[in-house]
Amino acid sequence: MKFKRIGKKGIVSINLLELFSMVAFTVIIYFLVSLLLFSGIDSAHKESKDNVAAFKRVDAGVQNLRVLLQEGANLQLINIETTAERSGVLAGKTITSCTDYIVERDCIDDTTAISDGTFLCKWAGELCYAQYQGFR
């Protein structure tokens, strides 16, 4: 099988407009590729950091529950898994139960939304505590 050779005229017959267009497209491709790579890396980094933050939050939630157990709390009344997962972060501190709030406003507002609707955070005597709705 023989390949037809392209003549020199075919290769070099590019006019000035085409040359400028090629340069412009090359620049566009360069930026697109850069944007593509950077945005990809950036979103991967963000996802990676979010994953670590989520893990640390739940892990700290479990440790907070350990402290509660040490203080005599009856953890059999709560679902450890969902309570730890509902933990929020406020000014670098992981909030798992009402007793973790140290500021009255945050306690009353339940700033990190740890309540699942079964209890309300109440402030009394410089401490935040959970007031259960209904049966408790």
């Binding site: 497209f25 566009i28 491709i29 697109l32 590729v33 944007l35 593509l36 790579l37 950077f38 945005s39 990809g40 890396i41 950036d42 979103s43 991967a44 980094h45 996802e47 990676s48 994953n51 670590v52």
Partner: peptide
């Protein structure tokens, strides 16, 4: 260019998430 443009619009190239 069309492929790159669509990929950028869809959130960029999929790079592996570190420590996933």
């Amino acid at each position: 260019i069309a492929y790159l443009g669509i990929t950028v619009m869809q959130g960029g190239a999929v790079a592996g998430v570190k420590g996933e």
